[in-house]
Design a protein around this nucleic acid. Structure first.
Length: 325
DNA sequence: ACCGATATCCTGTTTACATCA
DNA sequence: TGTGATGTAAACAGGATATCG
């Protein structure tokens, strides 16, 4: 840009050499080239011709009807000497008139890019230099882009705020549900303990009344299920039961070394040394699943069971075991 | 295909003006 | 009323890219 004027080789407003300065003060139009003779340096202080071209009268030779293009100069406040001096000096930068800006704005709304023909036409219509029109469009595009970026930023910001509020709400809900689960878990534990205590005392009474012919053997070590308690009792009377192994009675429910039975009888030990999250994981993945959930959620050891046909509620089990606390 | 001239766009900066405290 | 600070628009600078002969 400005290269056309600076001799730098035709940029931004090129073709000015063929454009006539329509309304140059002093009358007849003349090739702009005479105003933009290439100087040795575009930054030469002597070259302000581009600024000087900002004064236009209309093509008919009359002054512009809307307003004088250079409003800054007030002839009434200056003497003739100042007037002469004013017009000898390079023209200062002047703002476009309201009408001109409105016209340009309308044109910009139609198309924010400027083809050469339209540029020439606009310049003619507005009594401006094509270069001025081009510069106006460039600056206008820049302003438009800035505003659009601001709008985009605001939109993203509000979107972020909404998502954040959503997220915070979900966090609160999660905490609430977590508390609820813990509460229910505690309740179930207590209930379970009470039931087992009752059950065991009843079992002891039974074993005193009916002496065992053969000892109960726990070969699997997985005797923690509720149903195992009753099945163990039935095993007492079943000589073919695999629980009979070494002739020693193993009350699987009472084996403290068994991890599962320790879940059953010492649930507090499992969580007391763990962080809350770890304890939760234990509760959900081990204790809850094995001890508190319905039987379909309690899986025997892998080697003892055929999993070719998983339980219908497998998804639910996965849900529980993967609950991210 | 390559090159130079020309034109336009974009981005950043400078300059001049208008407004306000 | 003069003045400095500040915001904004016009203009400029330079790099990138496209088109054309």
């Amino acid at each position: 840009m400005a290269a056309c004027a600076s001799g730098g080789g035709g940029r931004d407003g090129g073709g000015l050499g063929t454009i006539l300065l329509q309304n140059h003060r002093g009358g007849a139009s003349q090739p702009l080239g005479s105003f933009f003779l290439p100087s040795s340096s575009s930054s030469s202080p002597s070259f302000l011709g581009q600024r000087s071209i900002v004064r236009f009268d209309d093509t008919n030779g009359s002054t512009t009807t809307s307003r004088p293009f250079f409003t800054a100069f007030d002839a009434d406040e200056n003497g003739d000497d100042d007037l002469d001096e004013y017009f000898r000096q390079p023209e200062k930068k002047r703002r476009l008139s309201v009408d001109q800006v409105q016209f340009l704005e309308k044109s910009f709304e139609v198309e924010n890019k400027l083809e050469p023909e339209r540029k020439i036409q606009l310049a003619k219509d507005l009594g401006l230099q094509p270069r001025q029109v081009a510069i106006w469009f460039q600056n206008r595009r820049a302003r438009w882009k800035t505003k659009r970026l601001e709008k985009d930023y605001d939109a993203l910001q509000s979107s972020f705020d909404a998502l954040k509020a959503d997220y915070d709400g979900l966090l609160k809900e999660k905490d609430k549900l977590k508390t609820e689960i813990n509460l229910l878990t505690d309740k179930l534990q207590k209930k379970e303990r009470a039931t087992r205590t009752l059950d065991l005392s009843h079992n002891d009474a039974m074993s005193r009344e009916i002496p065992l012919e053969k000892p109960i053997v726990d070969s699997s070590g997985a005797g923690c299920k509720q149903e195992d308690i009753s099945s163990a009792r039935s095993d007492i009377f079943d000589a073919d039961s695999p629980h009979y192994t070494d002739g020693v009675v193993h009350s699987s429910l009472l084996e403290a070394g068994d991890s599962i039975s320790s879940y059953v009888f010492e649930p507090d030990n499992q969580s007391s040394d763990l962080s809350q999250d770890e304890a939760d994981n234990h509760n959900n993945n081990n204790f809850c699943c094995r001890n508190l959930l319905p039987d379909q959620y309690v899986f025997p050891k892998l080697e003892d069971e055929d999993y070719s046909d998983p339980p219908a509620s497998f998804e639910d089990q996965a849900f529980w075991s993967s609950w991210p606390y």
